[in-house]
Design a protein around this nucleic acid. Structure first.
Length: 559
RNA sequence: GCGCUUGUAGCUCAGUGGAUAGAGCGCUGCCCUGCGGAGGCAGAGGCCGUGGGUUCGAGUCCCGCCAAGCGCGCCA
């Protein structure tokens, strides 16, 4: 596990040069400047670059190119850096030493499936709470996006050294659930030939009919033989458990699983709700108005106050959420928490932040990511997804139609903050039109080379990586060794959507290598080259697997 | 009306304040005496919504405008 990234190493070189230059009086600076090192877009500019001379030009009143030149003279020798050159108007470009690049093949092989791990989190406890769809219906396409995001983000954070808990918050209390129970009960009565009406605000989807029929099949008419209140209660318990089980099963189809399913009802049972409300009351953040209890979030900068206890005496969803975050931070002691919410909850973000602050928790410890709406398309035709009318496209249907891998790839490749179009036609095409298969094909090609070598009993463990001098070989290794810094970047920014793009670049680099370099050669004079290249292929496979695994995708050896 | 998010190639989308704005699909044309052609190479295609500002430097930051999505309940 790397605690000091390659990027950090280059930064250190620059910092050392600045320190030396200051000591010699070449740089008149009050404080040490922030050292920024980037990967240039143009490979002709090397592997790393810094624009520090341009940034310092004004403060030091030195021409940036001259400044760059004198800094370069003070950059220490390094085993990893081959050349350091000044480029106008004032960049310093670094190129990695080929011998060092080649050696990374051995490093990847040694680290195996841990390659890419970085120690950013120090194993501090972190929670990612996502999906958390009300158990009143199946997971649909929009939720699936959040599911994929949360799942991949959790994997990335795990690789970055955080002790991640993936959690699903089950909203199993409140008025929506009552409406659901009433809907199931009504459908249950209908299934047994009785007239019944859905409650107002009830759930009209066919799945409620199916659910009711299942209950009839399993338990007959027993719920008709008890008072309605009791029937609602008991049939509600059964329906809720069935729904949660269904949601869990559907999510498993796309490789999304949770460490914990947290029940809203437990907040009340275990007293967290009462403790959170008491805490707010003691801090004077609660006010009685119009027979209801309000959280005075406006004094903390929110645009309005919010009801936490209705005039009926029932707590609102917001009250539960406050108690839930009390539980996350104070009861369970998570250092940081990420919530992934759908776009329809964005209005809830400011008051959640103020509520957390009111509980005495630094609001920086809570990050709420919003995943925007998904429009489903079939070619050019828009598929309308609407939960109310009951004709939404579910996760199950989506996974069955396009497959779990394509599902994950396409949702993951977009930044969550943009509304996206999901083209079922494109996601389904099993051809080069589909980037999912482009990446998996590269992995399968890779695997088939190794399988062929094994079938010929070739032992490449003594391969000499210094033979890997073809530009396409070095380019492949250079792409491979970006994984650790990518993991670090994604963990810092909570942006796993870079992963599919990196996977595509890795595949491109591999295909390029494959076209240019014959790996297994029958010619005796190519023997050493074969061994070296097999080592490269093996290490590339490690990086492919790690990348696909972080995305939650499968790594097929045959397609 | 107010708030949040978004506007980049024909389409779907990337793009850490840096150097010549990228990928996939679609379009044109090439490439297999051998490990998987679901591949590779080359080309065409862009006032980065628009007008200002900050900066040595803006697709990126700030402000206005235009357009789209979502939200603005004692629902969740």
């Amino acid at each position: 596990m790397a605690s000091h990234s390659l990027l950090d190493t280059v930064k250190d070189l620059v910092a050392e040069a600045v320190t030396r230059a200051r000591r010699q009086g070449l740089l008149q600076l009050e404080t040490m400047p922030e050292i920024l090192v980037e990967r240039p877009a143009n490979p002709g500019h090397g592997d790393f670059a810094t624009s520090l001379p341009l940034r310092l030009a004004r403060a030091t009143r030195i021409n940036p190119v001259r400044l760059a030149e004198s800094l370069v003279e003070h950059i220490p020798e390094s085993e990893i850096i081959d050349s350091v050159v000044v480029a106008p108007p004032g960049f310093i470009n670094f190129r990695l030493r080929d011998s060092w690049v080649q050696q990374q093949v051995e490093v990847v092989r040694e680290q195996g499936q841990e390659y890419g791990d970085v120690d950013l989190g120090g194993q501090q406890p972190m929670m990612v709470e996502f999906v958390s769809v009300n158990p009143t219906g199946p997971v649909h396409v929009g939720h699936t996006r959040g599911a994929v995001l949360g799942s991949a983000l959790s994997r990335v954070l795990g690789a970055a050294g955080y002790a991640v808990t993936q959690e699903y918050y089950v909203n199993d209390a409140g008025t929506q659930m009552e409406a659901f129970y009433g809907s199931v009960y009504a459908r249950y009565q209908e299934a047994l030939g009785h007239q019944a009406e859905l409650p107002s605000g009830g759930y009209r989807g066919d799945y409620v009919i199916d659910l009711a029929q299942e209950i009839v099949d399993a338990e007959g008419s027993r719920y008709l033989e008890m008072p309605e209140a009791q029937a609602l209660n008991e049939i509600g318990d059964v329906a809720r458990e069935k729904m949660v089980a269904l949601i869990r099963e559907d999510l498993t189809r796309i490789g999304v699983s949770f460490d914990n399913w947290f029940s809203e009802r437990d907040l009340y049972r275990d007293g967290d709700y009462q403790r959170a409300v008491d805490l707010l009351r003691n801090k004077d953040y609660l006010a009685e108005r119009d027979n209801a209890t309000w959280f005075t979030s406006s004094v903390l900068g929110d645009d309005k106050d919010n009801v936490v206890i209705r005039s009926s005496g029932d707590p609102t969803y917001f009250a539960s959420d406050i108690a839930y975050h009390y539980n996350k931070f104070i009861v369970r002691g998570f250092q940081s928490v990420v919530n992934i919410w759908g776009a329809d909850h964005q209005g809830h973000v400011p008051r959640m932040n103020t509520a957390v602050a009111a509980l005495g928790i630094n609001p920086d410890r809570l990050t709420i990511l919003i995943s925007q709406m998904v429009t489903l398309k079939r070619g050019t035709e828009v598929v309308r997804a609407s939960k109310r009318s009951g004709d939404f496209v579910t996760l199950r249907e989506l996974a069955e139609e396009v497959g779990a891998d394509a599902c994950r790839y396409f949702f993951l490749a977009r930044t969550p903050s943009t509304q996206m179009e999901f083209d079922l036609e494109l996601a389904k095409k099993e051809s080069s039109e589909n980037p999912v298969y482009y990446v998996q094909y590269a992995h399968a090609r890779n695997a088939s080379i190794l399988n062929l070598a094994r079938s010929q009993n070739i032992d490449w463990s003594q391969g000499d990586v210094t033979l890997l001098n073809d530009p396409s070989e070095l380019a492949l290794i250079r792409t491979m060794i970006r994984l650790p810094e990518l993991v670090e970047h994604m963990a810092r920014t909570l942006e796993p959507h870079h992963l599919p793009h990196y996977a595509t670049e890795l595949a491109t680099a591999f295909h390029g290598f494959y076209e240019n370099c014959r790996v297994i050669s029958a010619l005796p004079e190519d023997g050493q080259m074969t061994l070296a290249r097999l080592k490269l292929v093996e290490s590339a496979q490690i990086v492919f697997r790690r990348t696909l695994e972080l995305m939650g995708m499968t790594t097929p050896e045959r397609m």
